[in-house]
Design a protein around this nucleic acid. Structure first.
Lengths: 125, 125, 125, 125
DNA sequence: GTGGTCTAGACCACT
DNA sequence: GTGGTCTAGACCACG
């Protein structure tokens, strides 16, 4: 369910954050589901507990998970608010990738086709 | 033509790399066009010369520009090779962004629409 | 009469302590009134009995309630001693909140107005 | 300029956060002023660098300071937006303190007088 | 030199 | 048992 790549440039704690988000989108993790404890996940991933704690606290800051004292960490309510606001901000981030592809002469249609595939892939269970 | 944000998390040298690429895609920079010298660009951007040099050497590594001793730096040949290989590798990078949007409940159609707009926007002169 | 938020950062036992104090101030609980037993309150709040016991022992330490063996727990005498001493100690705690507001540019008058409202609100039955 | 109390219940990183905020409100720190480097402040306070880093990253998240790569950390723009929204949320936090005081029989007028003094005290240079 | 990330291990309050 | 905080020390990319 979780797999991290310690050789990646991407920080480990971010990899954890994204994999948890991906699991929510795929439906593997639902509202109120418990997450593994910091210690457990850290030993599962052979990673320092602090690193997992950082990932969890980032997810909590984004109100994706919530912590109940002495009990553990759980998936929170999935809110789909402020859509249009987020949309443009988020998509700005992919501009460099698209620029890169156009520089290599990839056709727009081809790009769109592939993105559609990725979108399907993200949702599929 | 160049605008960098020193407060951004994105390294300055990468911002320079991407803006030069964007200028090529938009047609502002064409094959054999000269680039400003490291010193000149660094003073234009109020940035350390080392930073510009790093950007140029990265672009040279990617064979997008080439340096001719005693003459300066120039845009190289635009090659549209290795398309399909590059396509998937590059698009992997945008997966986290798309996951984020789906987590917020944004519809696939809406995402595709916006990406089409961005693609147009990248090409327009 | 009691409502606790298990997701809050504030310890549950402190929430119980404060709500009992609030009920005294509002006049819902008066001298010699009995409090629910630890077991009863813990099941009312769906909370571990240890947590309620901790709240009661904290209130007892502050001489706000008192426990009589075999009879139960009761509201004690409301003493209004040590005023001026307590005042400054307690008010130190709100300094960070006031600093935060001033940082956001909120006017002193506005703050005072709102605090007056809160004070009314606390007393009203 | 900074003084921390390692015996306090309040986390050290929060003490740092609040003291920096207080220094901004008092005018000791102004827009674009540099903060001491993580290492420097950590040795000034005899505290671990990670603890200072945590304080700085929290302040950055709140957009009170900003980090420029390889250069350091600086006070950002002081924005006084969303006043009324923040006001009530923040003031909720002082309710327990006010309740405590009323429980001890302190008069409203006395509380208001003292809060006015604190407000003056916060601003004074 | 700067901040960002990570490890290893510790103590604490809370439930 | 849980997460939150902290120390001590390390490596890295960036400028």
């Amino acid at each position: 369910m979780f797999s991290i790549d310690i050789t990646s440039n991407q920080p480990i704690y971010e990899q954890i954050v994204q994999q948890i988000k991906a699991n929510i989108v795929k439906g593997y993790l639902k509202e109120n589901d418990p997450l593994p404890s910091v210690r457990k996940l850290s030993s599962m991933l052979s990673v320092n507990p602090n690193t997992v704690a950082k990932a969890y606290s980032e997810l909590e800051r984004q109100q994706i998970i919530l912590t109940i004292r002495g009990r553990g960490t759980f998936i929170g309510k999935i809110s789909n608010s402020k859509n249009s606001v987020a949309l443009n901000d988020e998509l700005e981030k992919i501009k460099p990738v698209l620029t890169e592809l156009k520089l290599k002469g990839v056709e727009d249609n081809l790009i769109i086709e592939e993105i559609k595939n990725i979108l399907k892939n993200i949702s599929e269970q």
